[in-house]
Simulated scan of single mutants.
Amino acid sequence: MTQRYGPSGGGGGCATLLLLPGWFVAGYFLALPTVLPAVMDASPERPHQGLHASQLAVLWAISALTALLLAWMAGGRGRPKPLVLLAHTAVIGAAAAAAVVGASMAAERLAADPLLGDAATRDAARAMLIGVLGTVAAGIAAAVAFHALRRWGRRTGYFTAPVRPRATPAAGRRRPAPGEVWLAHVPLREDRSRALRHYCVILQNHDSHASVLQITSQPKDHRRDHMRIPNDGWDRTSGKAHWLELVRREVPYGQFRTTRPQGMCPPATWHEIVRSGA
């Protein structure tokens, strides 16, 4: 499913559009510390000279940054939590490294075939096989880890969190931000030309409107498309718990009735929203 929670922008949209060639590119960068030394080692101009420690450090840095970027993209549009981001980076990096090791072992066995010719030919074949198999294996492993982490993050909600609002530069006013509770005229589901005044939780902001979940004070415990949301002070009139409709709606900024949020969505409820896939 598409991640709907978190600020506009970020890596979620790019991640969902990442095609197969993109994974091969990512696999190449992840496998770079193994692939490039193997290719250079088999080069007839510089046989068995290898790379300097500083050069290897650069290659490992490129590989680590690639894993970090993929881990950030796996979080979708939400703000990543640092420790979880580092853990996801380690998972993607470890998966790619294990795949490269397996591909290198396979390349060694294939290149040892005497039918390939003399030692120089076998070395060249070995380098080519490590490059191709290592890149493909790392890309596939990274893709599997990426989608597994992305699915886990959506289910648990631990990768994303409500973020604080940003100013709207053009008007100098606050835009509704993900995780906030606002008061707005929310369009009706059956007739979008009509709207009623409701509290709502902001899911995502866009250029001209915000995606929200409507809050109602009417008991909805019998409805599977609603969840209870504690009243953490945003409805000071009733002071009672409310219910959140798990149906995404689009509200133009002109239909928000206040210039500031009424409060923040409780963290536990936010995680439930993420898990629900509303």
Rank of each mutant, 00 (worst) to 15 (best):
Q262V: 14
A268Y: 14
D221F: 08
D235P: 06
Q218I: 07
M227A: 02
R224G: 09
L246A: 04
S238G: 13
H222K: 08
E245F: 03
W243Y: 01
P266Y: 04
D225R: 04
Q214M: 04
S238M: 10
D235A: 09
P261E: 15
Q255V: 14
S217E: 05
R248H: 07
H226T: 04
R248F: 01
P267Q: 09
W234R: 09
R249L: 11
G239L: 05
G239F: 02
R248K: 09
S208G: 03
H242G: 03
K240G: 13
R236H: 12
D207F: 02
D225N: 06
W234M: 09
Q262D: 15
R228K: 04
V201E: 00
R260K: 15
R228N: 01
Q218L: 05
S238K: 08
Q262T: 15
E250F: 11
H222M: 06
F256K: 12
I215W: 05
D221N: 07
I229H: 10
R248E: 04
I202Q: 00
C200P: 02
H226P: 02
H242L: 06
G254Q: 12
R197P: 11
R260D: 15
C265N: 08
L246S: 06
P267W: 09
Y199T: 03
V201Q: 00
Q255L: 15
G263T: 12
V201C: 02
G233W: 08
D221W: 03
F256H: 14
D225Y: 02
T237V: 14
R257T: 13
Q214E: 03
N205L: 01
L203F: 01
E250I: 06
H209A: 05
F256W: 08
D235V: 09
G263D: 12
Y199S: 09
T269M: 13
S208N: 07
R236S: 13
